[in-house]
């Protein structure tokens, strides 16, 4: 019952050929479809639904919308009611309006980001099949990412004006969509400001993350890799191909993931994220990072801001 996992992100790109080269040859995603509007649909080799990423040719970068997959069609009715009862406007979307998906519902998170929930999407299957599969496919390209793992959304945080969209959106995700809180950053004189959160529906520490900033946007999309050595190899590919790396391979304190931050050719930040972190469960006590240890949480080794983490996003 309920939300299973991240379904897809609809991402704006400035040049579709450059974007495809990045997501296919460098990250190792597979093109599965195109539509008349010029959108291109991609999946990771380990994913079974037709796509987890939509590349939308545009004159600007950033995210159009994010979609999560629910287990049962009837979940959509239940969520429609709960979302409306919480005071958020929700629309019904006919089957097919989300490319090759069944009916869906659409609403804006309190942060302003557009979200869809859907229950069905065209099935393609994993590259290794489902009968006596090999552990990985032979024709893997670049980093060979397994799947779209999570997204981090920037939410407006302006305590002087009493605006905290991190807190509001976190409350919505927990109370209405039944997400669980894995970790949070608290800030302010008495730690009363919830400045960032990591929430899950799967058994990994996050399926979505929210961080406070001056304006809403997309901080990054993260793709899953098995382990640390895959992260190193992914960085080797990026070095060879001249990808703009924001933060070289290292460890997050928060979620314990091994990470690289880098940018796609339109300036959208990506992450390759390895390791399942830890077993996240509904009864796990949420972890809190205090403001003085915030950067240790984000970049565990140096404990300092690295790259352009908070000032640069699309």
């Amino acid at each position: 019952m309920g939300v299973m996992r991240i379904g897809h992100v609809d991402l704006r790109v400035l040049d579709i050929d450059e974007a495809l080269n990045h997501y296919v040859n460098i990250l190792g995603m597979i093109e599965t479809d195109r539509d008349d509007a010029g959108n291109v649909y991609l999946k990771g080799w380990d994913e079974w639904d037709q796509y987890s990423l939509i590349l939308n040719p545009s004159d600007r970068a950033g995210m159009n919308s994010i979609a999560y997959k629910v287990e049962k069609d009837s979940d959509l009715d239940a969520f429609e009611k709960r979302i409306a009862d919480w005071g958020v406007a929700v629309d019904r979307v006919a089957a097919g309006a989300l490319h090759n998906c069944g009916r869906a519902i659409r609403f804006n998170l309190p942060s302003g980001h557009e979200m869809y929930l859907f229950a069905e999407k065209a099935f393609v299957g994993k590259s290794v099949g489902a009968v006596n599969p090999d552990p990985w496919p032979e024709d893997i390209k670049g980093a060979g990412v397994h799947w779209l793992d999570h997204a981090l959304l920037m939410c407006e945080l302006n305590p002087e004006k009493g605006i905290n969209k991190v807190e509001e959106t976190t409350r919505f995700l927990r109370e209405v969509l039944d997400f669980y809180l894995a970790e949070q950053v608290t800030a302010g004189p008495n730690g009363e400001i919830q400045a960032a959160t990591w929430l899950f529906r799967t058994t990994t520490p996050h399926d979505i993350a929210l961080v406070g900033g001056p304006r809403p946007g997309l901080h990054h999309l993260a793709f899953f890799l098995d382990e640390w050595n895959d992260v190193l190899k992914a960085a080797d590919t990026m070095g060879r191909k001249g990808v703009k790396i924001d933060v070289t391979p290292q460890r997050h304190g928060i979620t314990r993931g091994c990470t690289i931050y880098f940018f796609d050719p339109s300036g959208n930040r990506n992450e390759t994220f390895a390791g399942l972190g830890y077993l996240a469960q509904p009864d796990m006590p949420p972890i809190t990072w205090t403001e003085d240890q915030l950067w240790r949480g984000i970049f565990y080794h140096v404990g300092e801001e690295a790259g352009s983490f908070t000032s640069v996003y699309t």
Partner: peptide, 26 residues
Amino acid sequence: GCHGGGCGVCKVRVLEGDYRTAAMSR
């Protein structure tokens, strides 16, 4: 920042000289 024309932090005004540009976020 992003080195991809998407984030806007590197915005400049060219006061003098000739140049060309690649796609930049509107």
